[in-house]
Computed example of a mutant assay.
Amino acid sequence: MRDWDDSYANSAHIPGSDKLPAWWAERAAAYRARLKSFKPDIAYGPGERQRLDLILPDGDSKGLVVFVHGGYWMRFDKSSWTDLAEGARSHGWTVALPSYTLAPAARISEMTAEIAAAIASAAAQVSGPIRLAGHSAGGHLVTRVLCDDNRLEAAVYDRIAATLSISGLHDLRPLLRTRMNDTLGMSIDEATRESAALRLPRGQSPLTAWVGGNERPEFIRQAELMANIWTGFDVDTRLVVEAGHNHFTVVDGLKDPSSAITRCLVGLD
């Protein structure tokens, strides 16, 4: 029988990964200290973690990028990822990074609603097109926003120019067979309902599923699945397997204005 815990165990297969969370936090804090235009902790709801940061470009804003962090819906917050805004910011985009309530305090369905609220709040403050990105669990959350049951008003949804799901999880049913579901508490009904790959898209907003070539095979399968299924609904989908990157390094290119992943995010490729 397949070991589903191992299928999703990124850290166990990346040497030195235990030191990464502290490094991410230090790197993000150093970046924030250098920012000229930074608006932290903007409330998008009443919850303690319902806060977002805005990173502004040096000149006029071309629009809004929203980046949603990962951590299996159980870990991290916006403060560890601020530096990932630099690529899009350098191209003139305002970047929003929301935190959201984590499990077990919230169900995944509630997190989906929170991210929709965060996007709507940021969109009310930044005009122009909206481009969504998320990593791992964050990739799941931004992709769910594109589904037929999403809670965004049409005026906001219609501004979404494209979505980038990085190492996203799009079929949650296998997670029912992992120990992490002791914390997530998903039933088969919720796992099915919250799986973007099992839902209809609301429209034809383009979607890119981006994944590292050195990731666990399950993450590559999840990316392939999402791109394949929504192609059948006439969504402009793209699959990118970036060679040489694991689950944690695959997002590093977002710091580089010239990287392929940044260019994809801001619509240059």
Rank of each mutant, 00 (worst) to 15 (best):
R2E: 14
W4E: 12
D6P: 13
D6F: 13
S7Q: 15
Y8P: 07
Y8V: 08
A12V: 10
A12I: 12
H13G: 13
I14G: 11
P15W: 09
G16F: 03
P21L: 11
A22E: 10
E26M: 10
A28I: 04
A29G: 09
Y31P: 03
S37F: 10
K39T: 15
Y44F: 09
P46M: 04
E48N: 12
R51Q: 12
L52I: 09
D58E: 14
D60H: 10
F67I: 10
F76Y: 11
L84F: 01
G87R: 01
G87H: 04
R89D: 08
S90Y: 05
W93S: 12
Y100K: 06
T101L: 07
T101N: 01
R107A: 13
E110K: 07
M111W: 03
T112N: 15
T112H: 05
I115S: 04
A116H: 09
S127E: 14
G128P: 04
A133M: 12
G134Q: 03
G138L: 01
G139R: 09
V142T: 09
L146W: 02
L152W: 03
L152M: 01
L152S: 01
R159Y: 05
R173T: 13
P174L: 01
L175F: 11
L175V: 06
T183Y: 13
L184Y: 00
G185T: 11
S187W: 11
D189Q: 12
T192N: 12
R193V: 04
E194C: 15
A196Q: 05
A197L: 07
A197E: 02
L198Q: 07
R199A: 08
P201C: 01
P201D: 02
T208Y: 06
W210S: 04
G212I: 05
G213R: 03
I220A: 00
A227Q: 06
I229F: 15
I229K: 08
I229C: 13
D234A: 14
D234Y: 06
V235Q: 04
V235E: 04
V241F: 05
E242Y: 02
N246V: 06
H247N: 08
H247D: 05
T249V: 13
T249M: 07
D252F: 15
G253S: 07
G253R: 11
L254V: 05
L254K: 08
P257T: 03
V266E: 00
D269G: 14
